[in-house]
Simulated scan of single mutants.
Amino acid sequence: MSITQEGGAPRADTEPPISRVNRTHRPTLLAAAALVLLLLVLVLASLLIGTGSSPAGRAWDFLLGDPTARADAQIRLAVLDVRLPRTVAAVLVGIALGASGCLLQAVTRNPLAETGLLGVNSGAALGVVTGLTYFGVDSPYAMLLWALAGGMAASAVVLLLAASGRTAGSPLRLVLAGSALGATFHGLTSYVLLSTQSTFDTYRYWTIGSLAGIKTSDTYPLMPLIAVGLVIAFCCTRPLAALALGDDSARSLGHHPGRIRLVVAAAVTLLAGSAVALAGPVAFLGLLAPYAARTVSGPRIASQLALSALVAANVMIVADLLARVVIRPWETPVSVLLAFIGGPLLIWIARSDKLSTAGASA
């Protein structure tokens, strides 16, 4: 490419295309590096800080391999059996909710969309209540499996409903099907809870959304599901970028809009269903993280997706750390803290003149 100098003589463009691309992506790369570094610092802080009486200094000595700290059963229990599992869970839940929120906002072209639109939360709640009431579920791990099964079953029904008819796979069909099924499942859940007091007592603890009591073994079944969801998500970035130009433009580029939306909805189901099963219904995180990512990345879907996952993971660990220390030695549910933060931010975003759309570029 060349431009004309004064006097009509052509002048070669001194900036190569690769340099322009690097300059365009530099803010995103810097933000991603900063978020990764912050995440590592927060993971370390999460291993050092807890609700109990174990001092952070002793936990630091344990991590450094000090023999006396390693021999301390209380420190070992606090770091390896309590703090490490919930730290891993916070990272997984954050990544899953951030990525699924970004996907859902992109596929529906609605910057205020969140994962509850596909019925995942209501399906997971009905799954937990069904397991507690009719199958005698009495362990956190079994509740996790029932929540995961319920969330995925609800999303499967939504996908089947959205895939039928002349407007198969359209954003409106997805949202309407998810909202209708979510309301139905919520009614069924309320009916079962009102008729069984013991189920309500257990369900009430799960539905507040918390990382307390999570074991390392609880995260193992969900890691492959989250990994598959992320792989599908990143494979859909180019089709989503085309879809942001409009259905007709996407078809002209060789894509199938209905098929894209259904595949993305399946990825959202894997990610959001795993997160809800692990931590319960956690509101606002899947909505706010993509908005924060877009302020840095712009309309590029792949960048939005990566930054959303990192932002949500950082916010989730910060919320979990605050949950441990706000009313020590007791603990505040993570979802409560996120609601206090997310509610006012959502109002500000909705009133802001800079409310961006979920558009994308190739």
Rank of each mutant, 00 (worst) to 15 (best):
C235Q: 14
G254P: 12
R238S: 08
A244C: 07
V268W: 01
T237G: 10
C235I: 13
A267E: 04
G246P: 13
P257W: 01
G246Q: 08
A241L: 03
A250D: 11
L262I: 12
A241D: 15
A267N: 01
L270G: 13
V263K: 09
T237Y: 08
A241Y: 07
V264E: 05
C236G: 06
T237E: 12
V268S: 05
G254S: 11
V263Y: 03
L262S: 01
P239S: 12
A233T: 10
L270R: 08
A266T: 06
V264Y: 06
F234Y: 14
R259M: 06
L243M: 15
F234P: 11
A267S: 11
V263L: 13
S249P: 02
R261D: 12
F234A: 13
S249E: 13
A233P: 06
D247K: 00
S252M: 08
R259V: 02
A265R: 00
L245R: 08
G254F: 09
A242I: 07
D248Y: 07
C236Q: 15
A244V: 08
L253K: 04
P239G: 08
A233E: 07
A266G: 11
I260C: 05
L262G: 05
G246M: 10
R259P: 04
L243I: 07
I260L: 04
T269I: 02
F234L: 14
R238M: 06
R259L: 04
A266E: 01
T237A: 12
A241K: 05
T237W: 15
R251C: 08
S249F: 08
T237R: 14
L262D: 02
R261P: 10
L245K: 01
S252R: 12
L262P: 02
L245N: 04
A267P: 13
L262R: 04
A242Y: 08
T269A: 15
G254A: 02
S252Q: 12
R251E: 13
I260M: 04
G246H: 11
A242F: 15
D247R: 01
A242V: 08
A265C: 12
R251M: 10
A267I: 01
R251P: 03
V264S: 03
L245V: 05
L262W: 01
R261S: 07
A265S: 15
R259G: 07
V264N: 07
A244H: 09
A266D: 04
V263F: 07
L270W: 11
G258R: 03
D248S: 14
G254R: 04
S252F: 00
G246W: 03
T269M: 15
A242D: 13
V263P: 08
A266R: 03
D247M: 04
R238T: 12
R251F: 02
C236P: 09
R259E: 01
A244I: 12
C236F: 05
R259S: 13
C235A: 12
P239T: 08
A244G: 14
F234T: 14
V263T: 14
V263I: 15
C235P: 06
S249L: 09
S249V: 10
C235T: 11
H255R: 03
L253E: 14
D248C: 10
A267D: 11
L240C: 09
D248P: 05
L253C: 10
A233Q: 06
A266H: 00
A250K: 12
R261K: 04
D247I: 03
D248G: 06
